[in-house]
């Protein structure tokens, strides 16, 4: 059992947990994720390690409620435990040898982006951050990013804070003004990462994205997380989740994410059309 040490609601439907897992914390690096299971009936849910404290032996995760399992996770309180927690998984990313990096986060993407930005800044990199969300309540980790960024921009779809529009508008300006950017890192909704990558391609700036493909085991065993990168099939859980944004087939990823959308409604207790399973619940 993996005990929850702290819980904090960061924004509507976005919750931060600090979980005791000393062995995982000891090995965690930026780019790693873990997989949790709340109870015996639960799915295995992949979540990015948003921060870690080796001394305390804790890892931090930030969870957005998007469906059944993430809602179940967010019902947990400090003192409760996860039944299972496995990690660190995935390939970590190198943050050395960059001079100037733009971090572009969409919504919850700020959470997985944070450890990377933090590590870059610790390496002495100049960090420009663009945080985007639908509306101002959904902007998270603003202060944390402000602390490590030389410049911080906010962008909301409804204009309730910062620029009104998409993060790509702001990024375009930043790219116009700076011709010395080594790398853009972007994490957020698949569609946003697609447009960011298209934009940076025009400017010829290297771009790293982090994919949140559907996963089961997270160890390269099922192939459910397949993604086409530069024409080759890769497994997001072991070859990624970070990839070169200019090589990822985003349209395929967008379709693959819809695979189970009908089933998810059923897990929620909604009816779906079509035949169910031949085997009746026993």
């Amino acid at each position: 059992m993996y005990k929850i040490l702290e819980k904090e609601v960061l924004a509507p439907k976005i919750t931060k947990f600090k979980v005791l897992a000393p062995n995982v914390a000891a090995k965690a690096q930026p780019g790693h994720f873990l997989i949790v299971r709340v109870d015996e009936q639960a799915e295995r849910i992949p979540l990015t390690i948003a921060d870690y404290d080796r001394q305390e032996g804790s890892v931090t995760i930030i969870v957005q409620e998007v469906g059944y399992s993430s809602e179940e996770i967010c019902k947990l309180e400090a003192g409760d435990s996860f039944l299972d927690l496995v990690g660190p998984l995935g390939e970590h990313i190198e943050t050395e040898n960059y001079k100037k990096v733009v971090c572009v986060a969409g919504g919850l993407g700020a959470a997985p982006l944070y450890p990377k930005a933090k590590s870059l800044s610790e390496e002495g990199t100049e960090v420009i951050t663009i945080l985007g969300a639908r509306t101002k309540e959904l902007i998270i980790l603003e202060e944390d990013f402000a602390e490590l960024s030389q410049q911080l921009y906010i962008s909301t779809d409804d204009g309730s804070k910062g620029h009104q529009g998409f993060v790509t508008d702001v990024l375009k300006e930043v790219l116009e003004e700076n011709d010395d950017i080594d790398l853009v890192i972007t994490i957020g909704p698949m569609i946003m990462m697609k447009f960011v990558s298209e934009l940076t391609k025009e400017y010829g700036v290297n771009t790293m994205v982090s994919l949140n493909s559907l996963m089961v085991d997270g160890t390269g065993m099922c192939g459910g997380c397949r993604v086409t990168v530069g024409g080759e099939t890769k497994f997001a859980c072991v070859d990624g989740p970070a990839f070169d944004g200019h090589l990822v087939d985003f349209d395929e990823q967008l379709r693959r994410q819809q695979f189970y959308s009908d089933h998810e409604k059923l897990a929620h207790g909604h009816e779906i059309g079509g035949e169910g399973c031949r085997v009746k619940a026993n």
């Binding site: 009936q41 399992s69 059923l266 897990a267 207790g269 085997v279």
Partner: peptide
């Protein structure tokens, strides 16, 4: 492993 044959009692589809 995830007992999807007992979905939706077990949550993995």
């Amino acid at each position: 492993l995830m007992k999807a044959y007992r979905f939706p009692e077990y949550k993995t589809p």
